[in-house]
Each structure stands twice: as C-alpha cells, then as structure tokens.
Computed example of a mutant assay.
Amino acid sequence: MRYDLTEIINCLPCSAGVYFFYDEKDELIYIGKSINIKKRVQQHFSGKDRKSLKIQLFTKRIACEVMGSELISLLYESDLIKKHQPLYNRSQRRTIYQYGLYKEDVNGYKGLIIEKIQSEKEEITSFTTLREAKSALFRITESYRLCQKINGLYKSSSSCFQYQLKECNGACVDKESKETYNSRVDAFLNKTTFEKFTKLFEVAGRTDDEKGIVYIENGVYKGFGFCSKETANEQRLSHIKSYQDNKDVRRILMRYLIGI
C-alpha cells in the first residue's frame, strides 16, 4: 500500500510524543521523539544531512503515539529503541557514556568536576560528549549559584569571571564560607540520590483531562502510565505499566530531577 507522506506529515499532531518510520516492507527503520511531533518529522524530510536523506529515501509510512510530556516521550523512546533496534537508530541502540560528573574536594569546597568515566568511581550522572557535559555543568553552576572556577569551568589564579559580574559569591577567592557554599552543592546532590528514593511524578497527559505518571520505588524505575486527573491517589499506581530499569533510563530521570 502506498501512502501520501506529505498528507500524513501535515496531519501529524503538534504534541509531545514518539514517531515511527517504516520502509516499503513495513519494517520499522527509525524511532524518534519530540515535544512537537509534526515539526520534528518535517525537519527529517527537509534535512540535507546523510541520515535525513536516507530516511527520506526509504520511509514509506509514518505513525506516531502522543505521550503528552517530554519525560514520558524520552522514556518510551528509549525502551522502544532497545526493543526493536531500528536500522537508523544505530547510535542509540547502545549509548556510550564517555564523561561523568563527580564530586571532588577543592580546598574544603565541594566541587562538581567533569572527568572521563572511571569504573572505580560512581558518577553523579553521565554524558556522551564533553560538550554535552560542560553545557550541563554550566547550567547547574548557574542554577545553584556555584563557582565556575571551583567546578573546573574557568581557569584562573584569582577570582572567576562570574564573581566580577556578581553572579558568584566569592568561593573562588575564599570570600564565601565553605559551609554556606557546600549547602547549595548538597541541595543539588540531594536531588540526584536514587537510593531508597520513592516518588510518583506527575506530568502532562495526552489529553486535557488526563495526566501522565512516572514511578520510582526504592531507587528503581518501575514504569509510567496515564490516569484521569480525578483518579484517587491510592489508585494511581494501578495505572503504571512496567518498564525496564537501566542506565539510560536513570540518566533521563536524573536530568529531569536536576533540570538539565
């Protein structure tokens, strides 16, 4: 059966969710996610890079599932790619994390440092590239009013640049007490602790009268689901569909928790 892809793309929802590309044998060749399915699929079919051109050549059918939120879209996409291993998701079948975020003592201040992944050390979270890691650490540093110099983002023998802009409290020149500074680092670290962490997250649903729910129990990701906004608290867990816990999922959840 032939499909008019232009017509299908025009009819795609502008909502958060997961989309699927199939070839002429109706075999799944690519899975993607976006906060705007229609816009992202249009980008695939207007792109000039090698991957986009292959997708344009071989895609004969498009489908999608609205998920309502970016978080559930990310979790669902990750699970589906591992399960189906589509041809053009090669780089996502087995993600390689090269860099980790580690805690390190810097003259009594708690520094957040990017280093190559070390098997003997437990990282706070991990990243695929150095650029991705630095971008995240800059945002964390700004959000918690930490010091770029202490976090290894600004090399200087004196104060960091942010101190000159009055966006750093002076830990870089020992003008902020270690206790006060470290309390803000601890606030960040407390958000990243999965051990014995049990929480039911509520996010946007697929419709206005629905909400999405994601469940972590004792530090283990259990899955996600959807329920009516009127569903009683004690009944929400019955709407959770079980999904596998793994490092990719924990990375997605960690980024959601710490807002990066």
Rank of each mutant, 00 (worst) to 15 (best):
Q85F: 03
E120R: 10
T141H: 07
V106R: 13
Y109K: 01
R61I: 01
Y97A: 02
S73G: 13
E115D: 13
N151R: 03
L74N: 15
L80V: 03
I62Q: 13
R61V: 00
K60P: 01
L87W: 08
K134Q: 12
R139C: 00
S126P: 03
K103L: 00
L130P: 08
L75K: 15
M67W: 09
I114R: 04
I96W: 05
K54M: 09
S78V: 01
Y102C: 03
L57A: 14
E115K: 15
G47Q: 07
C160N: 05
I96L: 12
T95A: 01
Y102A: 00
K103N: 06
L101D: 12
K149C: 00
N107S: 12
G47K: 04
K82N: 09
S135D: 14
Y154N: 13
L137R: 06
L137A: 04
S46W: 04
C160Q: 11
Y88L: 06
K51F: 03
P86V: 02
I62P: 08
I96M: 11
E132G: 04
E104K: 14
K116D: 12
D49C: 07
S69Y: 05
K155C: 01
R50A: 07
S159H: 12
E77S: 10
V106W: 11
K134D: 06
Q148D: 10
S159T: 10
Q98P: 00
E142R: 11
Y97H: 12
K116E: 13
L80E: 06
Q148P: 11
S158G: 11
Y88R: 12
L146Q: 14
V106A: 02
R93K: 12
Y99I: 00
Q92D: 15
G100Y: 04
S158Q: 14
D49H: 05
E142Y: 12
L74G: 12
S159I: 01
E132D: 08
L53N: 14
K110W: 03
A133P: 07
E122C: 00
N107F: 04
L112D: 07
I150R: 09
K155G: 02
N107E: 13
L101W: 10
T129N: 08
I55D: 07
F58D: 14
K51C: 02
K48H: 08
Q98V: 00
C160A: 01
Y102S: 05
K48Y: 09
E65K: 15
K54L: 12
Q118N: 15
F161V: 03
C147R: 11
L75Q: 11
R90H: 10
L87Y: 13
C160P: 03
S135A: 08
S119W: 06
F138E: 10
I62K: 15
F127H: 10
C64P: 05
L112C: 02
K121S: 08
L101K: 06
K134P: 03
